[in-house]
Computed example of a mutant assay.
Amino acid sequence: MSRVKVKDLEFELSIPEEKLLAAVEKVAEQMNKDLEGKNPLMVCVLNGSFMFASDLMKRLTIPCEISFVKLSSYSGTGSTGKVKELIGLNENIEGRTVVLLEDIVDTGLTIINTVEQVKQMGPADVKVATMLFKPDACKRDVTLDYVGMDIPNDFIVGYGLDYDGYGRNLKDIYTVVE
């Protein structure tokens, strides 16, 4: 599909599934090298990163575990500027390497808040992997250890990303048509 309608907005294809999976493969290869022997805990930030986390986990060859946290900072097409923790991390991460798996880093607010919360739990190291990064939207100084791809500062849906809860199921990524 070259165009889709999600709720009241039109979107056009911007990143096909094949390109997304190639980016995931690149991230997995780097993680397999960097995290060898570290027994990392992958922490999938829900809801958006579930597709990225699933595809990534299938490509990791290192021993690792996965857990999930649910955070929210969006409403409609824009950030609310506030991060709410909805479901927390239940594992003991003291002394472990933790890798936060994000779908997208744009303003940087969510990931900075999440890293700070995780650091308070005493891990040996906290790393950040994001499928997508919007450098032009980033308002904070963020450290991203693994980035699938940089993208423009456009509103997108698909591959786990949504518009008011809809569009996450699309296998490709679509950009809003202005």
Rank of each mutant, 00 (worst) to 15 (best):
L13Y: 04
V147L: 04
A53W: 10
L100C: 14
F50A: 07
K84F: 00
L109F: 12
G88P: 06
G81I: 13
I66W: 02
K139Y: 11
M42H: 01
N113H: 15
L100M: 04
E25C: 04
D164M: 10
K127W: 02
P16I: 02
V105I: 14
I173Q: 05
L132N: 08
E116F: 08
M121E: 10
G95M: 06
R3Y: 12
R96G: 00
E12P: 07
E116T: 05
V24I: 08
I66A: 12
D8C: 08
L71F: 01
V69T: 06
Y146E: 13
M121W: 03
V142T: 02
C64W: 09
D141M: 03
S49I: 11
P152D: 15
S72G: 02
I112V: 15
D103H: 11
D136Y: 01
A28V: 14
E116G: 11
L13K: 12
G37Y: 05
A23W: 00
V98L: 09
E102W: 01
T97R: 07
I173A: 08
I62K: 13
D103Y: 11
E18A: 15
P16Q: 14
P63T: 09
V147M: 01
K7V: 10
T143G: 07
L161G: 05
G76V: 02
I104H: 06
I62P: 07
E65N: 13
V115E: 10
K70W: 00
K33I: 11
F133I: 00
L9S: 01
R59K: 14
L71H: 08
L71R: 00
F68E: 05
F11W: 05
T107H: 04
M42E: 03
T61Y: 01
D172K: 01
S67E: 14
S14R: 12
D125H: 05
E65L: 13
K33P: 03
N32P: 10
D164K: 06
S72N: 11
V4I: 13
L13T: 01
F11S: 05
I15L: 14
T143K: 15
T80L: 12
V118E: 11
V176Y: 08
A22K: 13
S67N: 13
N39I: 07
D8A: 09
L101H: 04
E17P: 01
E85K: 15
G88F: 08
D106T: 07
M131Y: 02
D34T: 11
L41Q: 05
L86F: 12
K84G: 01
F68P: 00
D164Y: 01
E91R: 06
G78W: 02
G76R: 04
S67A: 15
V6I: 15
T143E: 15
M42I: 09
R3G: 05
V45R: 02
E91V: 11
R59T: 01
K84V: 15
V157N: 02
Q117S: 15
